[in-house]
Design a protein around this nucleic acid. Structure first.
Lengths: 249, 249
DNA sequence: CGGGAAGTTGAAGAGCGTCAAAAGTAGTGG
DNA sequence: CCACTACTTTTGACGCTCTTCAACTTCCCG
């Protein structure tokens, strides 16, 4: 299994919120959020030399669980999700990916999960072997990647707490709050939270069903925590209260 | 919060299954399973220079979530568990720790979880700053740690699937099977699986209650998958069938 | 042998899932 | 511009898995 046709898709730069001419790492909008920020401007040329920029249409699969992990990717625009499947089709979403996030780092040379876009997206693709070589030459780069993997591990552990011990209300509240925090960290607005994924995606991330996610959101709105403008745009009316709800009852 | 008295506990070497005189890394029983194996025998002396060996009584807390992460530990004997708490006391166990596993690697300088022993244990304690310095001198060591963190991340993602999408039977089957596989990887027997933790611990790991864990084990025994000799010793009568159950229905 | 913790089993109940249908939204083409 | 279609979201009724509460049993360790 290999993604093919999608790579030929040329996204409209405007819809990605990306500057068209930014093919050089030096001028990249999301560099400061990605591992690339570990390198000096002149070291960036070595990244430039091994990167391929790719446009991917929505709902296309970028990497397949179990495949040989030849590439590592950086998301520069759009949104994606990482997931694993059980043989009978049950799906668990491991995480949502936004500009600045990387994907494809795999133990033992095989992708541990699949990744598909939820929006038109742009990605930087690095051959794994060449990025590894770059890590050896530039220790800062490896340290940065190490740090990002540790952060991801900490997030995964928070998610275990959510999945194992939180109620539906707490899960949805946590989800909205974290999404807002991440948007702020990327320099975007945190109050109307944008949800670039379906209710089914949220459900498969939170260990619930679409119906429960929808009902819980409705209830949170009725109780004054949030206001749902459209399905994919939600205002956090009582940010602090929502955060409390997320961490307790 | 700092662990104190427990550090003074001197475990009987026999009960730990550890050779008494093995204070030198060179002669360590579990080195091949731990990150220490990344170093050559003569480089090991640098580890020797910064390590402190510690004995910990059962049910003592080794590190506290939120504390300043001054140390990194290696378990050399016994067993422990890592957990996080919600304000109201709900507990999620992040993982069980066995000889060869390390703990205390923390993003942003603070422990992301607490760790307590479930059996009399021995640990190697390394000052974080000195281990970091050693990583810079010996790149292999950092690579090994990086690899172990990536493995841990992959395990965490498997656990998300378990917590978010598997039924009680599948969770318990997965748990027993993985525990058996880990024992084999450590060079121990995989068939009578030893469970050095309580039913409550298992429940808090699998996102269930003690009652459900107990009932599910009883049912697995009734259906011929396992045989419970004592609460903490279980035979996997139909290993393959149990593995299938773990990954599907 | 005795007391306390851990484990097992039973009965009843709650939270979330399942099934079903209606309402909303987006994309397409006349 | 609007109708048509397909998908997503929302809402309702009902059922099931797992939890809760409680009693009993087993296992240790002094």
């Amino acid at each position: 299994m290999t993604p093919v046709a999608s790579y030929l898709y040329a996204p409209d730069p405007a819809e990605l919120g990306c500057r068209p001419g930014a093919t050089r790492c030096e001028h990249c909008d999301v560099r400061r959020f990605a591992f690339c920020s570990a390198l000096d401007p002149h070291e960036l040329r070595e990244l430039d030399a091994i990167v391929t920029q790719i446009g991917v249409a929505p709902h296309e699969t970028v990497i397949f669980e179990g495949d040989d992990a030849r590439y590592i990717f950086n998301i520069t625009g759009g949104a994606a999700l990482a997931f694993k499947l059980l043989p009978d089709g049950r799906r668990q979403i491991i995480g949502f990916l936004f500009p600045g996030d990387f994907l494809g780092l795999a133990p033992h040379g095989r992708y541990a999960y699949s990744v598909e876009t939820t929006r038109p997206s742009t990605l930087c693709r690095f051959p794994r072997s060449e990025l590894t070589a770059l890590c050896v030459r530039h220790h800062k780069l490896e340290q940065r990647l190490f740090g990002m993997v540790m952060d991801e591990l900490a997030l995964a552990q928070d998610q275990m707490m959510l999945l194992g011990r939180k109620h539906a209300r707490e899960r949805v509240a946590s989800f909205l709050f974290r999404l807002s925090e991440r948007a702020i960290a990327r320099g975007q607005v945190g109050d109307p939270v944008e949800l670039p994924m379906t209710r089914a995606d949220i459900a498969d991330y939170l260990g619930l069903t679409t119906e429960t996610v929808s009902r819980t959101l409705t209830r949170l709105q009725r109780d004054g925590y949030i206001r749902i403008e459209r399905a994919e745009r939600i205002y956090l009316e009582r940010r602090e209260a929502l955060s409390d709800l997320a961490e307790q009852g």
